[in-house]
Design a protein around this nucleic acid. Sequence first.
DNA 1: GCGACAG
DNA 2: ATCTTGTCGC
Length: 197
Amino acid sequence: MEKQDFLYDFLILLQRLVAKQVKFQRLGNVKRVCAVDVAYKGNTGIAVAVCDGDEKEVHKVTGKVSFPYIPGLLFIREAPIMLKALEGTHPELLLVDGHGIAHPRRSGIATVLGVLLEVPTIGIAKSRLVGDIVEENGVKYLVIQGERVGVKQGKYYFSPGNLVTLEDVVQFSRSGYPELLREADKLSKEYRRELEP
DNA sequence: GCGACAG
DNA sequence: ATCTTGTCGC
């Protein structure tokens, strides 16, 4: 897909629509938390959703992922298979591998999933997409044009997806990289190995 | 035009 | 993300 394609422009319109639906509200005490990640074997995607709470739960889904990765448009490549893996899970908080509003249009994959599922989400990425680091009171904020859109903790970037506040995210980030996401990442790569070459 | 660019 | 060996450090 090229940048001059109609589809490219259309996807950006959808992201702007999603961004308008975001609500920032304080996150209450949550018991059930889920995390999603995707691994690949060629064009086959392996999405894993791990949930914690009363009982641990793991959902695995594999399927063809043909859309290429384009910076800023990760959601169209990974959100579909992630949604499939999240079917039946009912998280009170969802952790997503990727950015939330720390995005050119404030519409990263964690935001898209949070709006579609109407669930609180936090995006956690291993690298920066946009923004600058501005430290204040020991907190490294990710700032885009003067607006705080996330925080950097260690080598990871945390940003609100939907239905949480930046304060919630700052608090959450203090615990470091979530064990649940680490597990989803580990399991997806683990399932990948037992796929027919 | 040049540099940057989640997974 | 994935392809990949050894190497530096706790």
